[in-house]
Design a protein around this nucleic acid. Sequence first.
DNA 1: CGTCTTCAAATGTCTGCGGG
DNA 2: CCCGCAGACATTTGAAGACG
Length: 387
Amino acid sequence: MSDELDLTPHEVVRGAIDESKSKLRNKLDLESSQGILPFTNELYYEQMNPVVRSSLFTAGKMNVKNGSHYLEWTEIFSFGGGSIHYRGPHLTVDHEVVLVKLMVLARGRSLTKPIHAFQADLLRWLKLDAASGKNYVKARRILDDLAAAEIRISSKPALQRLLAILTSPAIAELPDGLFFQSYINNRFNDQLKMIAKGLADDQPVNVTMKLVTSQTHNTVTKRMMINLDPVFAIFFDGVNTTLLPFEIWDDLDRFGKKLLSLISSHRDGVFPVMLEKIHEFSGSVSEFEKVKRRVKSDLKKRFEDWESKNYIVPGWNISRNDNGIEIIRGLKAGEAVRIRSKLNLPPIIDSDDDIERGSDRVVNQRAEDFANSFVAPAQRHGKSTDS
DNA sequence: CGTCTTCAAATGTCTGCGGG
DNA sequence: CCCGCAGACATTTGAAGACG
């Protein structure tokens, strides 16, 4: 296992951790609800792995203004085994920026309650000039797009989590848990047998969800109230998600945001991948054959830059295989994206062996990790994974 | 084949003005 | 401080060509 987290003796900080942990638990119990909220905070970008590995949010900005829209369920390009289908307006990385920042605002709150934000917040997130009215139009359109979007994901851990919520009586003990459970129940009870059978038989089963379920605009207070789809939370179990420090992610360009997240989602490095697939992953509308040389040289420059910043480790390589096909090898996240701000970055878990998580134990473990990050920042403290 | 340039069209951002 | 509209200005993109 290669996570180079410093292992600090527990005893030293034990007291502080226990205290901050219980403080966090109380906070979660009091303010939040079902306890399966995303544990992200202002320091970390967090996104579910199925999304990170897909081109759901495209790096390109073409075909956006002219209202490109998937009317029917369409399979989105995706690395790895899972599948992701989409229906709705064309989404770009700008949409993702807004979404993940909304998720940060949702931290510690019940997802059954709305998030409050100003449109000016969106402009700040997107690094747009707040003095320009046109930018408000763009921000509003992004929200509308998110509200219209529907995604369908096949993810075993998420389904297991869903099943656990549906069948576990324990969650109802939490303040808002009953509400959440009945919400899930109303929505999925009919499919319960199908989900259980699919899991047992190892067959693909999908979960359909929206991103933003509703948004209202208060013309008096000028504030927006935005509801996220609670089912979304199931995918943010803190285990099947990828984290990146915002201070890095915020400064990446569109494609960079996607690409570095993809690399970071593979703890042991990205498997060799065709250059053409990376191009497809970017969501570019251009024909690969016509732009491949450009793509390759641009990518080389990008990786050289990232290597110098320790975003990725040396050893990567783009070259042809015996069949003359360009292959990218040896991509692996570097130290800079793993640990930042002297805080503990929970390990990124990926392998098939880890598939059975999404368990309460792991989620609780994640909460503990998160709690640890409230300890004095000087004491960087890490743990290794159970793999 | 890889790197560097160039170009037009498509898009994105900013400026100035208006109002609440 | 919040918001909207037009239009000017800037950047990005896809595509193609020059050169070694």
